[in-house]
């Protein structure tokens, strides 16, 4: 069946369609660099979606829990073996993503006879010394987008672009405070939800609409948010935010 090039391209297209359909309703994940760290935020029905990877790294995701876990473990294993045998300083997101994760993801995507990975990741690394903050949005086919201030991963490419534009408009040149970052991330998430539900995208909802939508959704789900805090005194910079911490910002 796949002996002709055309067939293979067709198979890949089908695969793309299938994965995108499965991802479509995924809860968007937002990453924002704030004054003293990086925030990762999403809303989940229960399972955590933001994970600690290494001392200065976190990953969050949209997709099937089993696939998320598979990739999460992959990157955690690599980081720890590397950090142990060399140094913590040698564990960089650039290497983990480009030499570890994306080859695996691309291979899984291209192998049309096996079941695909239904997952998109947002991997973030807290910068230090001469390394800036890095936010890697990794697509289900292994393509990456790299940003330094903010990034977002959602169920579709169009929505990724839409939310990136929204973030670009609402973020200043300076990194915001954590409170502002949480509020912006929440609104961005709400816009994502709004766009998923809207049959046809006609006009931008107002800020009030977005807030109303946040409140409504939070009745059935909870916010999962964590920071990589550069001011933390321990070697691990990851900290999950408590419900109270988040609630205060949303008042």
């Amino acid at each position: 069946m796949l002996d002709e090039p055309y067939r293979w391209i067709e198979a890949i297209e089908n695969r793309r369609e299938y994965i995108e359909e499965r991802l479509q309703t995924g809860s968007p994940v937002v990453g924002i660099a704030y004054e003293q760290g990086i925030l990762s935020l999403t809303v989940t029905a229960g399972e955590p979606k933001v994970f600690e990877v290494y001392d200065r790294m976190a990953v969050s995701a949209v997709g099937h829990p089993a696939d998320i876990d598979k990739l999460r473990m992959q990157i955690i294993d690599m980081a720890h073996v590397e950090g142990f045998s060399k140094s913590q300083a040698d564990v960089t997101l650039h290497r983990l993503v480009n030499f570890g994760l994306t080859p695996l993801i691309k291979q899984a995507f291209d192998t049309v006879f096996s079941s695909p990975l239904i997952v998109k990741l947002l991997a973030v690394e807290l910068g230090q010394a001469r390394r800036p903050n890095q936010l890697y949005a990794i697509n289900y086919d292994g393509e990456t987008r790299i940003h330094q201030q903010h990034s977002v991963v959602t169920g579709s490419e169009e929505m990724d672009a839409e939310l990136m534009e929204y973030l670009g408009k609402h973020m200043g040149a300076e990194n915001p405070s954590l409170e502002e970052a949480i509020r912006t991330a929440m609104r961005t998430w709400a816009l994502g939800r709004h766009l998923t539900r809207a049959e046809e995208f006609t006009e931008m909802p107002t800020e009030d609409d977005l807030w109303a939508s946040v409140q409504e959704q939070l009745d059935q789900a909870q916010i999962d948010a964590a920071v990589l805090d550069a001011e933390a005194s321990t070697s691990s910079k990851f900290r999950r935010l408590t419900e109270e911490e988040i609630k205060v910002c949303l008042m």
């Binding site: 955590p48 994970f51 600690e52 990877v53 001392d55 955690i76 720890h80 950090g83 142990f84």
Partner: peptide
């Protein structure tokens, strides 16, 4: 000491 430190962190990060 080094293995132990990594082991505790690895457990926390992988097992949540």
């Amino acid at each position: 000491a080094r293995i132990l430190e990594h082991s505790f962190k690895y457990y926390r990060r992988s097992q949540l």
